[in-house]
Design a protein around this nucleic acid. Sequence first.
DNA 1: GCTTGACTTAAAGTGAACTCCAAGTTCTAG
DNA 2: CTAGAACTTGGAGTTCACTTTAAGTCAAGC
Lengths: 147, 147
Amino acid sequence: MEAEERKTPARLLGEADGVPGEWLEPRYPIGQAAAFTDVPADTLRYYERKGIMTLAGRTPGGARRYSELDLEKIACAHWLREAGVPIDVIRQLTALRGQGPQTASGRRALLVAHRDELQRRRDRIEESIDAVEEKIAKYDRIVEARR
Amino acid sequence: MEAEERKTPARLLGEADGVPGEWLEPRYPIGQAAAFTDVPADTLRYYERKGIMTLAGRTPGGARRYSELDLEKIACAHWLREAGVPIDVIRQLTALRGQGPQTASGRRALLVAHRDELQRRRDRIEESIDAVEEKIAKYDRIVEARR
DNA sequence: GCTTGACTTAAAGTGAACTCCAAGTTCTAG
DNA sequence: CTAGAACTTGGAGTTCACTTTAAGTCAAGC
């Protein structure tokens, strides 16, 4: 057992290797994938159930093996989640991506809709910040008056 | 029955009336309070259970009656919720407010903490927007290339 | 007195996104 | 070959903030 877990597969480091298609090899068990992507294994299985990950390769025995491309897809899905995109929308994006390049404009539309939503969310937060600052200022005056 | 429900109690319109302390009168039943504040009656009871509303006045029969001050407190709590402040934090603020003015600096600290949290949240969203825009641009190039 | 509608309570249900568990199977190092 | 770590599955549990339900009480108009 190593002192420190290796956290990044070659592809993510940009170490292009000679064998073409090598990063499509289903190589990484779920625990490694979890460590690489920082997404818990349970969550990876959950994403799969929810249909936002097309199934990675399996060993004859049935254990999942992720390729480096799969890891990138996971990273992308997880990133979208962190950006607040609901699983449902990610599923739609994934489904469209699976249907080939003619769905590109549909996917673009989904992303534009989400960007607009994000902007609205940011604007609301901005307003909240302003209002909270005002309240803080009010407390400053109160605290000041009591000294 | 009126054609249009009256949505705002006098105090919120700024119609100061002659009788001092009048806006402390527990006057409005929960349905009215809900209409005024745009917070469903169920949610008002829920807030009360959660301890983020000190109990409003009651009729002899046990029905809640809200004063205009209560309505302002509701508006404040609801606004904090919309700003993403968890119920728990609102409860702390409410509790501190109930303990008098010497807790003002404590309340200020809670608000500052929340403002910082909001700023972090806004910054994350900002990053997400940038990233989504980048993805959109990528799709633009794809869609362009296919024409 | 009776109906209607607004109110009361405790408790259960909802939905999103995980997160954990039990019991069994597979993989891997020695 | 075997011990034990890592994996499999289906399903239950968790958290948050409500939301709904069931069963009953209260106040006003006819």
